Simulated assay, not measured.
Amino acid sequence: MSLSGKVILVTGGSNGIGKACVERLAQDGASVVVNYNRDAAAADAIVASIGADRALAVQADVSTLEAVGRLVDEAVAKFGKLDAVVANAGMMLMRNVENTTEVDFDQCFNLNVKGPYFLAQKAVPHMPPGGRIIFVSTSVCRFSSVPPDYLLYAATKGAVDQMTRVMAKGLAAKGITVNAVAPGPTATDFFFRGKSEAVIEGMKKANPFGRLGEPADMAGVVAFLCGKDSGWVSGQTYLVNGAMIV
């Protein structure tokens, strides 16, 4: 699968699933924009490994509209266009309805929903026909019984799922597809944070394959959705969880 000549922007691209996506997309031939918020060293190392002619690191807190606009402007100034954006940056706050503060709510929705929404808005004018928008959701939204502490996080990702469905119809006339990837438990620092070894082992055993997902598992699906063979796929949320949730 070749992405040669394509320009793809990945938010939260310096670590975890975002880093795996950047590396896979570059491996497949794309030029990449690596967005990061705090870890400049990690982003710079990725750019160095790919080469400054095909990679650009841009610091931006993509929970804010100003930063999202600046990110897109810097990407286009470097490469002249955007063929795809991968809205990967996100946060998980474990909150139920009783312990959620207004600050919690605004932080989570700003990064997980507002950021991707306006990233799409700002990117679309710079996308040729055949453009791709890819959001990151979660398999949690398909659990038959979601634990109460996942309420706030699940609410943001439920919004992402609906954005995917409705935006796909709105952008079809421009030849732009919109899809989402919904990872299950994946071996990243984001996932491991705050979890005991026993909980992690339990999640491995709960999966039919007996393991957690790897960032590369997600990156492969993202690479497909960025490519030409996915042109008749739009408005879909792909569950990437090894049949843990179907």
Rank of each mutant, 00 (worst) to 15 (best):
R54F: 00
V47P: 03
T64F: 06
E66T: 11
D44K: 13
Q59M: 11
A52T: 15
V68A: 15
R54Y: 02
A57C: 10
S49C: 08
I46A: 07
S49W: 11
L65P: 00
D61P: 00
L56V: 11
I50H: 06
D61N: 15
I50R: 05
S63R: 04
A55N: 03
G69V: 00
V62L: 11
A41S: 13
A55E: 02
A45P: 05
A48T: 14
L65R: 13
R70D: 15
I50M: 05
I46L: 14
V47F: 09
L65G: 00
S63V: 04
G69L: 00
I46D: 08
A42I: 02
V58R: 07
L56W: 12
R54H: 14
I50G: 03
A48V: 07
G69S: 06
A60C: 05
A48N: 13
T64L: 10
A42W: 07
A55T: 07
A42H: 07
E66H: 10
L56R: 12
A43W: 08
A48S: 15
A48W: 03
Q59D: 03
Q59H: 08
S49G: 11
V47D: 10
A41W: 01
V47C: 12
A57V: 08
Q59L: 02
I46C: 06
V62P: 09
T64C: 05
A60F: 05
S63Y: 06
I50K: 07
V58E: 06
D53H: 08
E66I: 06
I50S: 03
A60G: 14
T64P: 00
V58H: 01
D53M: 00
G69W: 01
Q59N: 09
A60H: 11
D61E: 15
I46K: 03
